[in-house]
Amino acid sequence: MPKFIYIIFGLMTCFWSAFAQEWKAPEEEKENVSIRLFDNEIETEGGVLFMNSCKSCHGSPTQEDFSLMLPSPGDLASAKVQNQTDGELFYKIRAGKGAMPKFGDALDQNEIWSLIAYVRSFNESYKQPEPNLEGVVIPNITLNLSFDDNVDKLVVKTLDENGNPMPDVTVKAFVKGHFGNYLLGKSRCNELGIAYFDIDSKMPGDEEGNMDIIVKASKGFGSAKVTQKMRVVDAVSFKSAIEGRHLWSVSKRAPYWLIVTFLSSLIGIWGTIIYVIVGLPKIKKQS
């Protein structure tokens, strides 16, 4: 029995020391900073990623509704997280440890920075450190969109400043919706600088068959965004929800049968009354 207790105690000490060990980012990564400005757009982008990838464990920032796990995932708006540098957060999201997944496999650099931008939006005293741009090459990406109606594919061509194809660019394409953008796909350009996205031909566009297509591209520190109205699907005509004649509609647009029934009953009843009244003097005359 005492042996058993010792074993449990030993195991607990092992686990405890493993958990208690502070999670440190390598020195060379600590000072990394985002080259993109943390503006509203990048924060919103990060917010969407956060809700899909992080919220299940970390909860909503400032709400302290994180999952009960050991080690605790903690609230990301807490001082413990906010006191870390952007580089440290980037490393931890990218590399992961224990129960924290390695998001470097699933998210690209820009997406991780957008997550950090979102988390920083809960820290009012945070000031984004200025990046040192010396010796950094920022690729200038130009996007060229077209639609291949033979295969229903959106073709995105990425070009550099000289008009040459730019390979290995990460490209994401969306359809603009009233409340949010629908992701068509995420792809990487081939060696000819081309990425393809499937578009469902059954998807409704506007009355002329147009769709607002948004394409975002990034490579290294360079990024580009294009919004273009494109004719990619068949034109559809939208019916107004109050079109036609309905029982519930205003009197002007009441169903014909209702108007006919109502008016004929009205004329019938009043006609009878008037006929009787007109006939009364005749009865008197005859009597």
């Binding site: 919103t44 969407v48 899909n52 919220k55 009233h178 409340f179 949010g180 629908y182 409704p204």
Partner: peptide, 14 residues
């Protein structure tokens, strides 16, 4: 009419 709906929490559009 757009055949798109957006989730209020995740902001994901499907």
């Amino acid at each position: 009419n757009e055949d798109l709906v957006t989730n209020g929490t995740t902001k994901e559009t499907v």
